[in-house]
Structures are given as C-alpha cells and as structure tokens.
C-alpha cells in the first residue's frame, strides 16, 4: 500500500511537470500551427542560466531565469518564426527543428559538452517523511505550482480579453485578423506565455535532476510533443492531460520494469503510446476544426 501511494506521489509530480511542458508546446501549436522543437532548448537554456547565476540569491536566480527564457522565446519568434508565418506546416516543422539544433550547438560552443551540476536551493531536495511516505519539498512545490499554473492559464484563456482573442486566433487565424485581432500581438503573447511555462518547467525540472548538458531538454520536449499528439493536437486541455498521462506512465514503467529492461523504458513508453494512437489516432480530445487543417 505504501509503495503504491509512493508511486502515485512520484507519478503525480512528474506528470505535473510534463503537463506544463505539453501545455507550453500545445499553446504554440494551437495558435501558430507550429510544433516548436526548440521548446526543449528553452528549458536547457533556463538550466544554464541557473548555472551562470549560481552565486546570486535564489530569488534573483529564479526571476532572472524566468525573464531570460521568456526573452529568448520572444527573440526566437521574432527572428525565426515571424518571417515564416505564411510558411507551410512541413517548412515550419523543419525550421523549428533547425532552431532547436542551432541552440543546442550554441550552448555547446559556449559551455562545452561536459555535464554541469546545478545546485539550486539544495534544501528543496530534503525529504519529508510521514507514515512511511517520502516526499521532497521540491515534489510538493512541483505539484502546487502545476495546479496553480494550470488554473492560471485556464483563467487567462477563458476570462481575459486577450485570452479569448488568442483562442479565436487558435481556431481561425485569418478570421481573427479580419475581426481586427493583431496577428503579431497574438504571436508575441503566445510565445511569451509558452516561454514562461518553459522557464517554470526549467526551474523545477533542472533543479530536480541537478545536472545540465546541451541536450538535456531534448527528451522532456519529445515527451511533450508526443503528449500533444496523444491529447489531441490543437486541444490545450488534451495537451495537459496527455503530458500528465505520459509522466505518470514513465514513473509506472520505471517501477514495474525489471532492472535490466529499465534502460529501454522510453522504447516501452512509446510503444504503449503508439498502441493507444493506433486505436485512437485523433488523440484523447478531438478538436473538430483542427482535424480539418492539420
């Protein structure tokens, strides 16, 4: 029973992280029809920002990391994706792959290929124990932050004037322009929001794994992409649910797989997800308008 509960706790915290990850990716896809492969590098770069800012007070590190990653997301939009706004889906896809590769290698140029340790707020990793369950402060923070952010993003999209405009643009970008919604304003807001989500994931995820490499963001980003497909491309709720499911599944596999097979966890994970998609290729949540244009 305790083992089970422990597993649930771990799964929820990892699932939450991937839900935030997928939400950031899903937001950009919904509005720009762009799968942003470079979302992973936003997370990696947040990690390197924490390395550079290691000696600053933790609050300053956190705030500067957030700001830097958001800024970078905006620069990315301006330099690479704004000139491609009229481009076809495959072109956008390849372009974002190129941006991702570009950033990875810029990091390699600056920081080299060796693993760097990140020791942000070590006290967060202290476990709390109660009735046989171990949970770190960090896991608690992750769960709370995930819930708060999911609620905040939902409120932003449902209640604010700008959020409603973004949803309109996500459904029909051309028509949104015709009612006078500024295309650039929408794109900038989408990238800023996505960058914000990435920076939060970065702070939490990199703190948890404690090390950073130029390719660190790749794997969680890949989980995030698959999550948006699993949840139903174009649905933000679907993306969050998909991310949560994948995170949980990864933890479950980690527990149930025999030791010698654990190295193949991702292969098992993707095999399961492919099986799910074989039965339900449109994902958990079907967005009618998205199917027509994706």
């Amino acid at each position: 029973m305790t083992i089970l509960l422990q597993g649930v706790l771990d799964a929820v915290s990892i699932g939450g992280l991937f839900a935030l990850m997928a939400l950031g990716i899903g937001l950009i896809f919904g509005i720009m029809r762009l799968i942003n492969f470079a979302h992973g590098e936003l997370i990696t770069i947040g990690g390197y920002a924490m390395v550079v800012l290691a000696d600053a007070p933790p609050l300053a590190t956190a705030i500067l990391t957030l700001l830097f990653v958001i800024l970078l997301a905006l620069v990315m939009e301006r330099l690479a994706f704004r000139p491609l706004r009229q481009a076809s889906l495959p072109t956008l896809l390849i372009a974002s792959f190129a941006v991702s590769y570009l950033l990875q290698n810029v990091l390699l140029l600056i920081f080299g290929g060796n693993t760097k340790g990140v020791n942000f707020l070590p006290s967060l990793s202290q476990p709390i124990e109660f009735s046989g369950l171990r949970i770190t402060y960090l896991q608690t923070v992750i769960i709370v932050v995930t819930i708060v952010l999911l609620v905040a993003v939902t409120l932003f999209l449902k209640r604010t004037r700008f959020g409603i405009q973004m949803r309109a643009a996500a459904e029909d970008f051309r028509m949104a322009q015709l009612v006078g919604i500024g295309a650039t304003a929408v794109a900038v807001t989408a990238f800023a929001t996505s960058g914000f989500l990435a920076s939060v994931v970065s702070l939490l995820y990199i703190t948890q794994i404690g090390v950073i490499l130029p390719q660190t963001g790749l794997q969680p980003a890949l989980f995030g992409f698959v999550a948006t497909v699993l949840g139903g491309l174009g649905s933000l709720l679907g993306a969050a649910v998909g991310g949560f499911v994948i995170g949980c599944l990864a933890v479950v596999l980690q527990i149930v797989l025999p030791l010698e097979l654990r190295l193949f966890r991702d292969a098992f994970l993707f095999a399961i997800l492919f099986a799910v998609l074989l039965i339900r290729p449109q994902g958990f949540i079907v967005v009618r308008w998205a199917r027509e244009r994706v």
Partner: peptide, 16 residues
C-alpha cells in the same frame, strides 16, 4: 469561432 461561446464571439468582434 466555433469553439468559443456566442458571448465570446461577440466580444472578439470588438477586438479593436
């Protein structure tokens, strides 16, 4: 905008 409510569609109409 079919995924938005009627009310939201009207609000979006006043975007400018």
């Amino acid at each position: 905008f079919s995924s938005l409510t009627v009310h939201e569609n009207l609000k979006v109409g006043a975007s400018t």
